[in-house]
């Protein structure tokens, strides 16, 4: 016994949300070879099958690439600061990959330890996540190596698992999910089989052990020398969250904004004196892997990686975390 929804049922859901002025975002083919999570204009833009995953992640719907934090106005010597419109649009993230949804509870921690980032939290509260279990994977996928799977529940309010073409089993994980699906489901005798994930490629505990004890290893040299420092890995990563804060405007008015940043950029840690603690790509690559597999686990008790493989697929020189991690796992650094 299960509950199901058809593609038509999902289209209806999308239409209803859009009609109420809410936002719906999901995978869509934006160019011939480019599938991205984008805000949808209608259900026909939603792509559900026959691809591995979008080239971006869900994080931009909670933590935008560019976000105004407050505005300023200057009159003579006086300065007035004002809040800009806080996020208030409800959004539905539909057909999200489980590896993207799993990133959200991970990000919740960094945006809330000590002081809460209300920009992120507001959007999070306004968001409902409908995941679609993966029925295919490619060589870059490694969710099973970081404790997840093609139908991992983490961060998902409702999960769809493909039964037949155009028909999905629906598994509600949260109250938000149940209320979203209320009245839309058909009972069915069919139960979806558990999709198979990629084989395990490495053990995160080994990676952690390695980065703890090999800060000065020549391994980082050989990995880092290939890196162009473009930041594609970080920008397409569901969990990378580093940002920069700058002012945009003129001497009379403007706003303070935050933009995505990346530890792969040379200016990221550059001191005013000229000294740079991470002065080359090997040091920056080491930071990225260390942050994900050692620093974040030490601070928050979990890995800052969901195995989506975006860093590998989007890397222009074919490195990405997976090659580094499997090399560590296979002892090729020794």
């Amino acid at each position: 016994m299960s509950f199901t929804i058809t593609q038509d049922g999902l289209s209806k859901l999308v239409n209803e949300w859009l009609a109420r002025g809410k936002r719906v975002a999901g995978p869509s083919r934006v160019k011939r070879d480019c599938i991205l999570y984008v805000p949808l204009q209608g259900p026909d833009q939603l792509l559900l099958e026959d691809f591995i995953r979008p080239a971006n992640s869900l994080k931009e719907f909670l933590f935008p690439k560019h976000e105004r934090l407050f505005g300023y106005r200057i009159n003579g010597n006086g300065v007035e600061l004002f809040e800009l419109e806080p996020p208030k649009t409800e959004q539905l993230l539909i057909a999200a990959r489980p590896c993207d949804a799993a990133a959200l509870p991970i990000l919740d921690q960094v945006f809330n330890w000590d002081c809460a980032d209300e920009f992120y939290n507001r959007r999070r509260q306004l968001t409902t996540v409908v995941t679609l279990a993966c029925s295919a994977h490619d060589d870059a996928c490694f969710c099973t190596s970081v404790g997840l799977s093609p139908c991992a529940e983490r961060g998902s309010d409702v999960m769809l698992v493909k039964l037949d073409r155009g028909k999905y089993e629906v598994r509600c994980h949260t109250e938000k999910g149940r209320s979203l699906m209320e009245g839309r489901l058909e009972p069915s005798d069919q139960v979806a089989s558990e999709p198979l994930g990629p084989e395990k490629r490495f053990d995160p505990a080994e990676v952690r052990e390695f980065v703890k004890h090999n800060f000065a290893s020549a391994f980082w040299q050989s990995e880092g020398l290939t890196c162009l420092g473009c930041g594609a890995c970080a920008y397409t990563c569901p969990t990378c969250h580093c940002f920069d804060i700058i002012d945009e405007g003129n001497a009379n008015e403007g706003a303070r904004v935050r933009n995505w940043d990346s530890c792969q950029f040379s200016m990221f840690t550059q001191h005013a004196s000229g000294h740079n603690p991470r002065e080359n790509q090997p040091a920056r690559q080491r930071q990225r892997i260390s942050h994900k597999f050692d620093i974040y686990p030490e601070k928050f008790g979990e890995i800052l990686c969901t195995g989506c493989g975006n860093c590998t697929r989007n890397c222009p020189v074919g490195i990405g975390a997976l090659s580094v991690l499997t090399e560590i796992g296979h002892g090729e650094h020794l």
């Binding site: 945006f111 330890w113 940043d261 840690t269 001191h271 050692d294 620093i295 030490e298």
Partner: peptide, 21 residues
């Protein structure tokens, strides 16, 4: 230690030395 910082509250990700923010 006077590392480069942006947020001041452990979020922007650049001032860490290992797990020490």
């Amino acid at each position: 230690l006077e590392n480069r910082m942006k947020c001041g509250c452990g979020k922007c990700g650049r001032c860490n030395v290992g797990a020490f923010y």
